[in-house]
């Protein structure tokens, strides 16, 4: 019973992470298109897209947050495995669990602190210069994504069997 609940959680997290990554990728693609539109606009029509640089900054931050969980689930973070190449699987498993633990802790810390900073950003009307886009929306995305990272980390900690290692 416990196993099947964990499976559901695992599948759910995988789906969420993947949709986030896709959404982030689409944002980057849109930013590229906006930039090109802005270039065409200012070259041929004397009018660029208003605030294109700000849109890129805000969009980039959101996209990167959305990328984070998928990177973790796909073991995208670089590790040095040269010095531990000859360790026993059990040792390796222990070290990897330590890595998952740190990741979970770090993600939770970011998520928690960003809630506070985001609220403050809203209270102080933190916004971009030209379009006056409120910045606290970026914090919202960041908090959600780091929370998903935390859950992914917990899930890994609780059910990664000995023998399954990072690449």
């Amino acid at each position: 019973m416990k196993l099947s609940i964990m499976n559901v959680v695992e599948v759910g997290l995988k789906r969420v992470s993947m949709s986030f990554a896709l959404l982030g990728g689409l944002i980057m693609l849109c930013l590229a298109i906006i930039t090109v539109a802005s270039i065409i606009g200012r070259t041929f029509f004397g009018q660029s897209v208003e605030g294109d640089y700000e849109l890129t900054e805000v969009g980039l931050a959101m996209a990167v947050f959305l990328f984070l969980p998928e990177c973790y689930l796909r073991k995208g973070h670089i590790i040095v495995d040269l010095f531990t190449a000859h360790c026993r699987p059990k040792t390796l498993h222990l070290l990897d669990q330590l890595g998952h633990l740190i990741f979970t802790f770090v993600s939770a810390a970011f998520a928690y602190r960003m809630v506070l900073s985001g609220l403050e950003s809203r209270d102080y009307y933190e916004q971009t210069m030209i379009l006056e886009l409120p910045m606290w929306w970026v914090y919202v995305v960041g908090v959600i994504c780091f929370s998903v990272c935390t859950l992914c980390g917990l899930q890994r900690l609780m059910c990664s069997p000995v023998g399954e290692q990072n690449e």
């Binding site: 200012r42 660029s48 210069m129």
Partner: peptide
């Protein structure tokens, strides 16, 4: 008129538009 002008802030950006400039804000 028609020149691509980097404005120092939003207020001046509005100002240059009065002259028909194409204002661009970049870092």
């Amino acid at each position: 008129d028609g020149l691509k002008v980097r404005a120092p802030n939003k207020i001046m950006s509005e100002g240059f538009k009065e002259f028909g400039a194409n204002t661009i804000f970049m870092p």
